[in-house]
Amino acid sequence: MAFSFFNKLKEGLDKTRKGITDKIDDLFNNYGEIDDALFDELEEILIMADVGMSTTLKLIENLRTELKVRKVKEASEVKTVFKDVVEAMLRENNNEPFHVGDVPTIVMVIGVNGVGKTTSIGKIAHMVKAEGKSVLIAAADTFRAAAIDQLKVWGDRVGVHVIHQSEGSDPAAVIYDAIQSAKAKKIDVLICDTAGRLHNKVNLMNELAKVFRIIDREYPDAKREVLLVLDATTGQNAIQQAKVFNEAAQISGIVLTKLDGTAKGGVVMAINSALNIPVKLIGVGEGIDDLQLFDPHDFVEALFSSK
């Protein structure tokens, strides 16, 4: 079980790995001793992986310290130490994988346009349902054209009912309906889709605030999970997205999607250190099963392991 999970993650991260580890292997094979050039190259690799300048500098600093502590002299050993350093930083902020414990739980899924909210909801619903829990989905993205239809298709795929109104209706009203329905049917997990928008912060905040007021009022006993979906292809702007949404809602975790591409997803580390928000799930494809729990060790292993 654990093994197959690891393979699946590795598979999803295959391209990621190819990008970053080839370079790192080149690097460590090319340098006999540890010098500034090696650190410069390392810096470049991390920047190219979207880790961001400040986190990169921090990681390199940690590496330098660790190399001293462990009295490492050989460039070839640096890689192992570096893996540890990266994993340590990931672990600091990612010690709670996604898990629906208490019921009822309400899961709010938020994020900008196109990151994969609706798709992730389909996958999450599938995952939670497989644990034997009853699931309901609320189609509160009433803004994007045909977003409701898209979610309904996912509902059918997963075998989960989708509460919806018409396009353009008030998202808070949809959530209200869904909560009533969840309560009446004693549903374990209610998952809510929302419209992705960033351009107008004021509108976004107002809309989300209103939705949360409804939840406070109508569903105070439900455990709340607020998942921010981030696209691994996104660069440093992901930090800004996390900041903006974190102001509007208390984000409890991140879903990092599209790790099946060549994007490296390093921005996760930047967000971790900037905002202390854990990554809980990763998306590795468009299929119903292409969702994995985020695990720092597997993540780093898959990232660094040679083919």
Partner: peptide, 12 residues
């Protein structure tokens, strides 16, 4: 192309 794309933009 999404203007928010990171370092991978060039690759893509």
């Amino acid at each position: 192309l999404d203007a928010m794309t990171g370092q991978d933009a060039v690759n893509v």
